[in-house]
Design a protein around this nucleic acid. Structure first.
Lengths: 190, 190
DNA sequence: TGTAGCATGTAAGCCGTTACATGATTGA
DNA sequence: TCAATCATGTAACGGCTTACATGCTACA
């Protein structure tokens, strides 16, 4: 592991992730960065709380990985806009190059509850799974809209690959849920 | 949301998850509970650190959701063994019945890095993905062994359903990775 | 004899959340 | 004029981790 940060301190992964969002280009306010996170990070990482976005931006600025510029809006309103610096991009590249990704971590409360299925009636478990499937379909549609927006304004090919991966994942989840509901159905000999 | 805990405090989800592991039966030491978590929770939740297992057990005991018994081993060694109580099982059932699962959260650093693919050469991204696929295959095998062990000692049908879901998920990940590697390959017209 | 596994904890600290506080701008 | 959205933070706290500390037991 190469020393990326001053004082041998690593950035927390979410800090790196937010810096990565800035590496897509643009000069964003904290608020806008949060919006971008909601459209991207949310699907494969976490979308940090507003307050943490500001905290991470502060840290990134301390490290000179982002630069900050006060921009005056129409009225007397003033926003701070952040952009990645050369040092920031270098740190990102170094992180990509010199460290290995850890195996993905899932916090899947639906599966947790299925795992504890012996504590409820199968009908309740099936209802929960059906409800989950409905939300999965919403997510697929959400990603579809994001992909369409991406087609008009393509920052790079990778976000679309990620969105497609997400849709594939959600479809697989629906299939898995259908399978299990079918097998838990008392009408079907198991 | 129904009040499950004394003083209107909810158990943290990992506490509930550990209680759930105890609801599968048996009188386990903290150490054994951790081992059980490594074989189950790890795949769809988190496998908490040893120290946290003890912390949660302490809390669970305060709530009288588990009972604790000192057991003397062969020598002068003594272990504390925990079992779920009736109140604990009731609390678990109430939680299952009265609360809804949140949508799963993924912390997928491989996808995060793919998302930031514009910062590296496609070859490096492909190498990372190939490495990930190799680890996925290991996981599938791991789950296979767990399923075989389950066949001999079936506590309920649900753990096997979960393990199968996990394998399906990992297989889908391999397919997604293969697809993307294929498309990033410069030899293939994209 | 020494190492790996069994077994139980404490302490410090970070990541990230919720709750709170404040105020400007836009549009119905 | 009122609500929604834009915009920026602070404070308190909880969950979970790592590092540390300790000691027993089996086995090679």
């Amino acid at each position: 592991m190469v020393m990326i940060m001053p004082g041998d301190k690593q950035l927390p992964p979410t800090g790196l992730a937010l810096l990565g969002l800035l590496s897509l280009g643009g000069e964003l306010s904290g608020y806008e960065l949060k919006r971008r996170a909601d459209k991207t990070l949310r699907f494969f990482w976490i979308s940090p709380a507003m307050s943490q976005v500001y905290t991470e931006l502060e840290r990134l600025e301390r490290y000179a990985f982002v630069s900050c510029r006060d921009v005056h809006g129409p009225g007397r309103r003033q926003t701070r806009r952040f952009a990645i610096t050369a040092a920031g991009e270098q740190a990102l590249r170094a992180w990509m190059r010199d460290s290995e990704p850890e195996f993905p971590v899932l916090k899947h409360s639906v599966v947790l509850r299925l795992f504890l299925g012996h504590l409820t009636e199968p009908e309740r478990t099936c209802a929960m799974l059906a409800e989950y499937a409905a939300r999965l379909r919403e997510r697929i549609e959400e990603l579809e809209q994001i992909r369409e927006a991406l087609r008009e304004d393509p920052p790079s090919r990778y976000p679309d690959l990620v969105a497609e991966w997400g849709q594939r994942y959600y479809r697989m989840e629906i299939d898995a849920v259908d399978d299990i509901v079918h097998r838990l159905d008392p009408d079907n000999g198991s």
